[in-house]
Design a protein around this nucleic acid. Structure first.
Lengths: 152, 152
DNA sequence: GATAAAATCACCCTAAAGTATGACTGTAAA
DNA sequence: TTTACAGTCATACTTTAGGGTGATTTTATC
């Protein structure tokens, strides 16, 4: 089959390599090499057998059936910020504000414009946020904030 | 680099096998009356090699079946993915996978390592995701995904 | 077997994010 | 009034994200 091209190519390459090896040995070492040829042949044959076995015994494709008919409960509209966690993290008011805007997917530039401050200020705030929350990226900060109910 | 990984693996494997073969030959010279054992060993090793190769190259991808049965007003606790929205966005399985890892706050590099593919592949996927979701940034994609219940 | 979609990867380049450091100001607490 | 801190901003630098393009290979489907 054409779709197993890679396997066939590798198999042929392996066979070729082994035969090349044997040929080289025959060229320079004048000994009884029948045995080595025999071994090489076995190797090639059983490699092929292994490939064949694996392909043959492979599990058939799983048919995916997606059943629908779902009824969703409307998410509770009441959100209360977790003051405990907020205090633990020791985030300032401004930092929480920046964090919320981050969670809305705004860029630092957009946050800066929204809060009427400079981009550098937002960078400083975000760096502070990441340090306090012990995360490395804004996405992690947002994930954590949602998990801790610091943000809806 | 990811592009050289397979080549390195094959090279090392091949080198190891040849070395093993030589070692077996040396052993055989000493114990020269066990031809069957020698041949058998080679057969087993190379059958295993063949199976390993086939499995490695064929990448037996398991379809992640998401069967969804009539859920009545699921309360807070378990999460059911919104198949309708998912179909509307036309996100592929892989793209959804990447999106989920994004939502966990992983960087593209980390996602690449987790999924055993290259960074460029993840970039391509994420670009596709942003285009399909009509967003500009990963944070927006995550926000939207959570809002649409594509992600817990 | 042809075809389409999905997945993979590369290269180049720009934009955005993040790090590190230092500095200035206003306010509130000690 | 000194101290501490929040908030502001800057400059320089590194890293990560994202855009655009093109290509190959798998996989599914007709």
């Amino acid at each position: 089959m054409a779709k197993n091209r890679q396997i066939i190519i590798y198999g042929v390459a392996l066979a070729f390599l082994i035969f090349l090896l044997k040929w080289l040995e025959m060229r320079f070492i004048i000994i009884d090499n029948q045995l080595e040829l025999y071994a090489g042949l076995i190797a090639v044959i059983f490699t092929a057998l292994g490939i064949w076995l694996a392909l043959k015994l492979r599990k058939p494709k799983i048919h995916t059936v997606i059943v629908e008919k779902e009824v969703f409960a409307s998410p509770n509209g009441d959100f209360t910020i977790n003051q405990d966690e907020l205090r633990k993290l020791n985030l300032s008011k401004r930092e929480l504000e920046v964090l919320q805007l981050m969670a809305e997917g705004l860029s630092n530039q957009e946050i800066a414009e929204k809060l009427f401050v400079s981009l550098n200020t937002i960078k400083t705030h975000s760096a502070q946020i990441f340090e306090k929350m012990e995360v490395k990226r804004r996405t992690q900060a947002v994930e954590m904030a949602k998990r801790l109910s610091l943000i809806p």
